[in-house]
Amino acid sequence: MRTRRDKMGRGVLSVVLCLIALTYLFPYIWMIGTSLKPDDELSNGKLFPEKITTVQYKSLLEGFDAGRIQLKYQYPRYYLNSGFVTLTSVGLVLACDALAAFAFAKFEFKGKQVLFWLMIITMMLPVYATLIPSFYLFSRVYHWVNRYEALILPGVVDAYGIFLLTQYMRTIPSELLDAARVDGAGPLRSFWKIIVPLSRPALGTLAIIKFLGVWNDYLWPLVMIRQEKMFTLPIGIGQMQVRQGMVVWGVQMAASVLATVPVVILVFIMQRQFLRGFTAGAFKG
């Protein structure tokens, strides 16, 4: 009796939650709907287009021509920029952080505590603490305005990643490393053959966090990038608004769909590892 009532309660709850989820997704549904509308339906107040068209995507990729106003977006270029910057950043962060975390977790050396705490404190600093001096440094000293270096290098310094990886690597038994050393393996070899394979879950978590952070970053590229051919996706989509009024809604939404869909698909495909690894890393430390 009791279990049957529990089951029914569960069923009702499932349905209710699904309805909530659908409502929650409303902005996404609207985005996709709008991106498939022709221009004259854009502000008709309906969620779905009456006739589905890809004209917005066409304008986005091939340019936009409304008599007096002609616009061409370098949208594929934004995509390439974002992709390149994100992948390079993630790769560099993983390499730097894993090496440093290895040292913090498995070596004793002078100044270890001081360096570690120095790192932790700066980890808590907001991006604004370094925004203006970094801008000065990058524009006046390094002359990196509109350069990939400016987008990639500052992000490589990620103390949070080191913290996460150090905590994880501490749980790897030191006996494994001792055994490897006895067999004549140097530190780099033990790192590559033992530490890296065993830290895979934590590395995966860090890669995902970093990927999302860089892919979606807005403030720093906004400060450093002025040329359209160097725009990342967030800046590029953001600038579409500035240049035009209402007319480009459709194009903007098409751009948004194309920028969002791959990431969302990735989340759904990797759902299991993604969500589990993500939370394990965030909390087990």
Binding site: A21, W215, L233, V264, Q271
Partner: peptide, 19 residues
């Protein structure tokens, strides 16, 4: 459901705000 509710966290801030 967790993946659904997580979607805004993986969507660009710019996209969300413009919607």
């Amino acid at each position: 459901l967790r993946a659904v509710f997580f979607m805004p966290s993986v969507t660009s801030v710019v996209v969300i705000t413009f919607i």
